[in-house]
Design a protein around this nucleic acid. Structure first.
Lengths: 344, 344
DNA sequence: TATGGCCGTGTTAGCGCTATCATTAGCAGA
DNA sequence: TCTGCTAATGATAGCGCTAACACGGCCATA
């Protein structure tokens, strides 16, 4: 066996091959294939036929260099395995679909160094824009974003100082709002369960907001529990058991995401704990998964799809506002009380 | 506000800028930045310092055009929202990490036309290789793959005729094996629950294999139920209820994936159905989610990470075999009986 | 019939890099 | 002292495409 897979000794095709095959200049072929400029119908047909017959695939590298235009949009996100970013990506793809722009994804695993190198790599392809999760970046990354000379949209979060545009929700406010709802429902001994990731700034801000909301009611967290990797659902069970063993009189558990919340909910139901009477539960994100659980977990929708849609609109320049650059779009998550918070 | 975000009237930096700033030729700068060829330490330092100070980001488009080398690997997958492909991607990324190659992802949503256009788009960037899910492609897509002149790895499935290399499992065999296990455990009235997607060839092959396995024992499916979109967990509940209402004497339910299987399991537990005594359940994929369920669903691991690893190894040319191109790697999924199949 | 305009096409000159070869300086060995 | 080498650097020529303009032919209008 030999590579290339097909025994094709010819070098790869260029415009010249199509131009020779169809008897017109390279320029005309280029015009036909890009649908640009006036070309007569007969010529167009001739060219298209030749291109198809040869199996010509244009070389975007050469095209991009010549035209100084690249139809790529860099999208930099921390993770793909939880349910949040796939949905953001969906919003982005849908919106970009009819613009000729194409998303290219990079994953950082919540690692700032990795974010820096992914960003560097992306910028070296000179994309038309960059969508990047979060407002916190290394100084070098921020410098790159600032001097890239292309539209930048920081997504998910708006509690901070954007480089250019930003689309997201206030996680601090979301945390506060959840705290207020919980307190209003009469819960007093409240525990928090979350991830150990110091680089998940949005989870951090939610917790800060949550603490703030409790403080306003003269409360503070009664206990906390954190986890590292592993199956989130399983971790949710384990952590719930651990925190309740340690602090049995807790009457509410606030989880930093829905997956561990769902695990906690399943564990409580297994144990026959009265939810939400004896113990209330809430998560964050509004993942679709919750619809299939025996009881619906209280949560807040993070507006993931809309965030993707708006970010892509900004890059594609199709914001209704007509504003160019420096836009700040705040979305407002809705609290879904589900079946795991007592109704007051 | 004006775009670009930073008031930087200069055009973007080029090698020339760095070369002027450091007093050497562009060629030398290029050599330093790529770590190629002999450059004296003093020159190297001077150049690196200038590049850093200016914030120079190389233009890979120009570099790729000049060198005819592109460090990108196209990865084309049908979906990102289920749990299977993120894990494949993880395997790919990990393996590519130290090779200088970078994965670029395209999603087809199980749509052959979309696959064709995503592939075309990718090939137009002249990647070093393509990893693509499945062995079934439109004739045009297959033609493109065949004449691309780069290594192609078709992943997930090996029941078919690969263009070049392939890494995957036999879904037909997986289905058959599950059928044999179920029959051996004494179940006789078996129902199937799956997706409506005609383009999910792997699910189709699993079902074919499953039917075949039943047939060998003189059995056939007692009932079937299919679903479209929506929350898989919820759909699993609904479908399970529907199929059992229609055919109450079923004693086993085989689900085409773990998510709907998990939904079914939760529903059965809610209903107080004796699992696995009165009713056995099994899914497919071996997703991590299952670890958090009250009972562990029987499933088969689809070797997702390994598939990604091997595919990336082939593209990167680091297969131990030393074989170049045309490799076929079959992986063997293990059946995890969990708690939802009677032990014989 | 002259004139201007437009339509369809070709020509030319790069885009920002890198492959390749040429060139220089420095030095060991004869 | 000269040759022959190596190490470091520079000059040149594209990579495959597109922007920008140039150029003929043809038409409508005057």
């Amino acid at each position: 066996m030999s590579r290339p897979p097909v025994a094709d000794p010819r070098r790869t095709l260029t415009l010249r091959d199509v131009s020779e095959a169809s008897g017109v200049s390279e320029m005309t072929v280029s015009r036909v294939l890009r649908n640009r400029g006036d070309v007569s119908d007969t010529t167009r047909e001739k060219v298209l036929q030749a291109a198809r017959a040869l199996g010509y695939v244009p070389n975007k590298i050469a095209g991009a260099l010549a035209s100084q235009r690249v139809n790529l949009v860099g999208v930099i996100i921390p993770s793909m395995s939880n349910m949040v970013f796939p949905e953001v990506m969906t919003g982005i793809s849908e919106t970009l679909e009819d613009t000729g722009l194409q998303p290219v994804m990079g994953v950082t695993n919540y690692n700032p160094e990795r974010e820096e190198s992914v960003l560097y790599e992306m910028l070296s392809w000179r994309p038309s824009g960059v969508i990047i999760a979060g407002l916190e970046h290394s100084p070098a990354a921020r410098a790159m974003l600032e001097s890239a000379g292309i539209p930048i949209v920081e997504i998910m979060d708006i509690d901070g100082d954007p480089v250019d545009s930003a689309v997201g929700i206030s996680h601090r406010r979301a945390g506060r709002q959840m705290a207020e709802t919980i307190v209003a429902s009469g819960y007093r001994r409240i525990g928090f369960l979350g991830t150990k990731m110091p680089e998940d700034h949005r989870a951090r801000k939610r917790l800060e907001g949550f603490r703030e909301g409790l403080a306003r009611a003269g409360l503070e967290l009664a206990d906390e529990e954190y986890y590292g990797g592993g199956s989130a659902l399983l971790k949710g069970r384990e952590m719930t058991e651990a925190i309740l063993r340690r602090t049995p009189d807790l009457d509410f558990l606030y989880y930093s995401n829905d997956m561990i919340g769902a695990g906690g909910l399943l564990w409580c139901l297994d144990q026959g704990i009265d939810v939400p009477g004896r113990l209330g539960l809430a998560g964050f994100n509004g993942v679709e998964l919750l619809d299939g659980l025996p009881r619906k977990l209280a949560t807040m929708d993070a507006c993931r799809r809309e965030i993707g849609v708006h970010a892509a609109e900004i890059i594609a320049g199709k914001r209704p506002s007509g504003v160019i650059g420096g836009e700040l779009i705040e979305l407002f998550p809705t609290l879904q009380p589900g079946d795991t918070i007592r109704r007051p």
